[in-house]
Amino acid sequence: MKLSVFYEHIREAAGQSGRSLEEICTLVKSFGIDALEMDADQFKAEEDAILTLLTKTGLTVSCMYGFFDFGHITSSAVREEQITSFLSMAGRAGASRVLVIPGFLEEHEQDPASLEHQQCVQLMKEAVAAMCAAAKPLGIRVGMEDFDDSRAPFATTAQLLSFVEEIPELSCFFDTGNFLYSGEAALEAYKRCRPHIGYVHCKDRTFEVHPKEEPKLTADGRPMYAAPAGSGCIPMKELVTDLLQSGYDDTFVIEHFGAQDQLAFMKQSAEWLLGLRKEVLGG
């Protein structure tokens, strides 16, 4: 089992604890976490400092993620420039995969039956397919996740699969906690997505109120809060166990944006995941 965590969690933990980024990275490494998920904009702003930090602490970048507005870019030259720049940064960071968030719908594009909606989604799919084609010779795998936002036309299982099934080189980056946003059962979503899963975000959530934490609201307005893996309302044990038993041997990404104690959450999540691996596979 390989574990990764978001670089943004490292930054948040440093701010919460008053420790340096290097100290937090060293602690994270001691938890059994070897890699980071890197925001492309963050990397662009701090590339030299980030690369130095990685060298000092022995961490690597497992995946780089980027936000785009492909649904509203009609120029192929502009699209190609953005894709090239993104993949180049991923290469410099040493990432073997990228997560693309291809864009969001504007208010007048929300109706799936409207021409505006269909044109926007089609532009997104064309851009993602172009990214997959450009990434393949670089040895970089492209994926999309079930992004928890009503403006994302890839938030639900059906929406995400409409991208993944239409674009052969595109992988499903399964986020265990995001289907709850749309009111879908994670286990049912997992069964449908399973043949396409190439990467996993281990996000647990709870409806138990955390007074000092800003909640994420579901599509129907219920406040959700961050939880260490295995401690919330997502069926994490069933999901991770099935992945391990089915031979998934890639990375499990620890994710809990909004946590008030990122360092403690990262430690607890890593301990739970590694403990479950030992329980399921032994050794």
Rank of each mutant, 00 (worst) to 15 (best):
F6Q: 05
Y7G: 04
Y7F: 13
A14W: 00
G15D: 03
G18I: 06
G18P: 05
L21N: 00
L27P: 03
K29C: 08
F31K: 04
F31Y: 08
F31I: 01
L36E: 03
L36S: 04
E37P: 11
E37H: 09
D41H: 14
Q42N: 15
F43D: 01
A45H: 12
D48E: 13
A49K: 15
L51R: 15
L53R: 07
V61G: 05
F67A: 09
F67I: 13
F68M: 09
F68Y: 10
D69K: 12
D69H: 15
G71M: 06
H72P: 14
I73S: 13
E81W: 14
Q82V: 11
I83D: 03
F86M: 06
M89G: 14
R92V: 11
A95F: 03
S96R: 12
R97M: 12
E107A: 12
H108C: 11
Q110D: 02
P112W: 10
S114G: 09
L115Y: 14
L115T: 08
Q119T: 07
V128C: 09
M131Y: 09
C132W: 09
A133Q: 12
I140R: 02
R141G: 05
F147Q: 06
D149I: 08
D149E: 06
P153H: 05
F154G: 02
A155L: 12
Q159G: 08
Q159E: 14
L160F: 04
F163E: 03
E165K: 11
E165R: 13
I167M: 04
L170F: 15
N178R: 05
F179D: 05
F179K: 03
L180A: 10
G183R: 08
G183C: 07
A185I: 15
A189R: 07
Y190C: 02
R192M: 10
C193M: 14
P195Y: 08
R205Q: 06
T206C: 05
K212L: 06
K216Q: 08
L217F: 14
G221A: 00
G221E: 00
R222T: 06
P228H: 02
A229Q: 01
G232T: 04
M236Y: 03
K237M: 11
T241K: 03
F252Q: 02
F252A: 01
F257K: 12
A259I: 05
D261F: 01
F265R: 02
M266I: 10
E279G: 04
E279K: 08
V280R: 10
G283D: 14
